[in-house]
């Protein structure tokens, strides 16, 4: 069941592919700006850190019924990490656990970003996805 992306995430991937290189950076910046702040109840709570990102990024998942909610925290001085988190949030928040687990962690490879921000930096997306999935699996097994 690996392969297909949830429709919202597929839409974002398509959006990146359709624009030129410079616009991809602008788009990533937009996603970093659109990343919602942590809700008050999670502020001050110790969240899991994504160590593979060069700048601090923290992720927290919550499950309500079958729906997953994603929360991220990153400083404004780290727009790239925030941008990746913004994409994952906009594409996967509200999906089911199964949909997220079935989403390939390397989905961002098809976004045409490697050439504008370098392949090394793209690893952050996979690292975010790995944390999200692990938290969901651990919760299911608990």
């Amino acid at each position: 069941m690996n392969g297909a992306l949830p429709p919202k995430l597929q839409g974002i991937v398509d959006e990146f592919v359709e624009v030129d290189r410079t616009e991809r950076l602008d788009l990533l910046l937009e996603y970093s700006r659109d990343l919602p702040d942590l809700p008050e109840r999670l502020q001050g709570v110790e969240l899991e850190r994504v160590h593979e990102c060069q700048t601090p990024l923290f992720v927290q998942t919550e499950v309500e019924g079958d729906t997953v909610h994603l929360f991220f925290a990153a400083p404004d001085e780290a727009p790239t990490s925030k941008g990746f988190a913004g994409i994952v949030h906009a594409g996967l928040d509200g999906c089911t656990i199964d949909e997220i687990l079935a989403t390939p962690s390397d989905f961002a490879a098809g976004m045409g970003l490697a050439g504008v921000i370098s392949p090394l930096r793209m690893r952050s997306v996979g690292a975010i996805m790995a944390r999200v999935k692990r938290q969901l699996v651990e919760r299911a097994m608990a």
Binding site: L29, P79, G83
Partner: peptide, 21 residues
């Protein structure tokens, strides 16, 4: 270090040089 930081605002007239790219 952050490849997007320049785009969030920079010193007027400054140009970006990215170490990777």
């Amino acid at each position: 270090e952050d490849v997007l930081l320049y785009h969030t605002g920079h010193i007027p007239g400054a140009l970006k040089v990215d170490w990777h790219l």
